[in-house]
Design a protein around this nucleic acid. Sequence first.
DNA 1: ACCCGACGATACCGATCGGTATCAACTGGG
DNA 2: CCCAGTTGATACCGATCGGTATCGTCGGGT
Lengths: 196, 196
Amino acid sequence: MTTTARRPTRVAKLPPRERILDAAEELFQAEGIARVGVQAIAERARTTKMAIYRHFETKDELVTEWLRILAADYQAAFDRAEADHPGRPREQILALARFIADGLPEISYRGCPFINSLAELPDREHPARQVIERHKALQTDRLLGMCAAAGLPDPQQTTAEITFLLEGAQVSHQNGSIGQVGPRLLRMIEAILDRR
Amino acid sequence: MTTTARRPTRVAKLPPRERILDAAEELFQAEGIARVGVQAIAERARTTKMAIYRHFETKDELVTEWLRILAADYQAAFDRAEADHPGRPREQILALARFIADGLPEISYRGCPFINSLAELPDREHPARQVIERHKALQTDRLLGMCAAAGLPDPQQTTAEITFLLEGAQVSHQNGSIGQVGPRLLRMIEAILDRR
DNA sequence: ACCCGACGATACCGATCGGTATCAACTGGG
DNA sequence: CCCAGTTGATACCGATCGGTATCGTCGGGT
């Protein structure tokens, strides 16, 4: 809710909070949560540690906010899939698969940030972990709705199958055990949508 | 600290190196690599930090050795699947899927150690990471051989599909987005083996 | 009985971590 | 123009980390 201070000094400089979240996003994705110190985030955000603690109570809260934003981005992909193909759940599901497949080159060998973050958050009461689990549960619900609307047989089982494939594709792409992950994933999803 | 004396080992105490590896296995699986200190491993192994450094040059080497042993365990599951169902590749693949499905309750909300460790090892040159990638590549090769031997159509694509499902099942079980993961996974694998 | 290597215990090192205190410089709104 | 609030810079704290040094003890071969 901070105002849009749109008067940069020389170069377009975002407000500190945005720069911090951007820097955190890049570093957490590239190196993981635990390996990235608050000092390193401050330097990449061209600010100081103190500025970070003015906007976030703890590092854990910064992590949580990062994942909240990331989850919102993924939910936005769901929204877009529904908006782009209204009333055509098969196209919606395929658009989601394409969203994942297209994102593979970007995450490259570092994999899905949600999966990675879960590995670093063994505490089930950790707020960041709850953000991830809530997001995944919501994603399952929406996918289930699409499968049911598409008239696919056994929507629960089909939802599980699509979810496994999407998650597994990202993992296999990360560890390099499978080549051509994107095209292969799309072929599998299409095959699921074609059987009825 | 709940030390949970789960096994008093009334019989002769194992040699220090075994106790260290056992302790490391439990702690790394439960809390991840970075969050577990060498001191904590020593305490659970009922020894000292010095003893650990007498058997392992660094903590990274201990991590690597743990993953080497774990990878060997998984390869042993492949061996067992082949030995138990000689000349019947479909049964072999199904046995592997059962092996993964049966392991789900044990890993529970902490997920697959390979996937988790990969998240904590962003350095591609890290020896532990190379152990994982080599293991996954080998696993893909053996699965590909089974698919080809089973006469499944497009063995490469089928291998990718089975791999995605196995990995994705573990991830989804970890984040709790899908229920009844084990039975669902087995149904999917059976469906793949039945289509020809 | 001897001895040598392995083991246990403890204290310590430098580095780094998350988080805080303090104060100067700047900036925009009244 | 002026002041209040935000920001930047630096120094610091206690805790914990991976790793080392030291020394006393123990046990099993020969």
